[in-house]
């Protein structure tokens, strides 16, 4: 099998393999890996964009300060529009998620980089954190009234139990779709680029079509990375709104 592959080396999933940064030992829970490295670079990017960019604190902002302010205003408005004024209390948490996801996604587009958000372990952790947080918050804020989220009072009485079952199922499916959507999008785009790259490598000079394909998919991926970060964040806001205002 490997002998066949040697002529035509396309291993689109190899880019997602977790490797220790130092040596070739086992990966323990604390081992610094390529995931650690790229998460660290994400943190540095956050510092560069939001801390270094705003150090001028100018009334008339510089370009970098403008970027930081735009991102701030964008997420702030999203939280306020969707979750209301009460939701703004949780704005730093949502901003944390957005900054991590959008920068991890975009950094993942650098050649030879590792996309931390293409791993279901990462996105599922965030999605579960959001799910548990909003569920506990819903019960804490509303008590058992939170269950009215599943009781569609605008529907005819006969339909309500059936709708309740559907609502409950859809509620518990939320973290699954929330996490798989992001990881799947990241993985698929990168894998497609890698497949095209494999074709290009096999064709050598004259690989115009695969390279054009890479360019096209890369452009699409630029969109997808930011849109998926936006989708993850806006869904978090929607779930938060359900916890704060559970009237259906």
């Amino acid at each position: 099998m490997a002998a066949e592959e040697s002529a035509f080396n396309i291993h689109p999933m190899d880019q997602f393999v977790i490797k220790p940064l130092f040596g070739h030992g086992d990966i323990l829970w604390y081992t610094p890996t390529n995931a650690t490295l790229w998460m660290g670079i994400t943190v540095l990017a956050v510092i560069a964009m939001l801390v270094l960019g705003t150090r001028g604190r100018a009334i008339v902002p510089s370009r970098s300060q403008s970027i930081a302010e735009e991102i701030y205003a964008f997420v702030h408005k999203m939280v306020e529009d969707i979750a209301g004024k009460e939701g703004l209390k949780y704005f730093p948490y949502i901003m944390t998620l957005f900054m991590f996801i959008v920068l991890a996604n975009v950094l993942g587009l650098l050649p030879m980089s590792f996309t931390t958000t293409s791993h279901i372990a990462v996105t599922a952790t965030m999605a579960m954190a959001v799910f548990l947080f909003v569920t506990l918050l819903g019960f804490y804020k509303n008590g058992f009234k939170f269950l009215s989220l599943f009781w569609v009072s605008s529907a005819p009485l006969v339909l309500r139990p059936i709708l309740a079952i559907i609502e409950i199922i859809s509620y518990f499916v939320r973290p699954v779709s929330h996490s798989i959507r992001l990881a799947g999008n990241m993985m698929a785009g990168h894998a497609v680029i890698k497949v095209f790259a494999g074709f290009a490598g096999a064709m050598g000079i004259g690989a115009v079509a695969p390279i054009a394909g890479i360019m096209a998919v890369y452009g699409l991926e630029m969109l997808v990375t930011v849109i998926q970060a936006y989708v993850f964040t806006i869904l978090t806001c929607v779930y938060l709104n359900d916890a704060l205002h559970p009237v259906h």
Binding site: I18, I27, L28, W29, Y30, T31, T33, A35, T36, M39, G40, T42, V43, V46, I47, L50, V51, T54, R57, A68, E69, Y72, F91, P92, Y93, M95, T96, L97, M99, F100, T116, H119, A121, V122, T125, M126
Partner: peptide
């Protein structure tokens, strides 16, 4: 690899949260 990724993710998110909550967001 799950434990490793989750551990470093939590560290990363906590660090980003602290940077945002203590420095970046109040400043902006």
């Amino acid at each position: 690899w799950f434990a490793n990724q989750i551990f470093w993710l939590v560290v990363t998110l906590v660090v980003i949260y602290l940077i945002l909550a203590k420095v970046a967001l109040p400043r902006i």
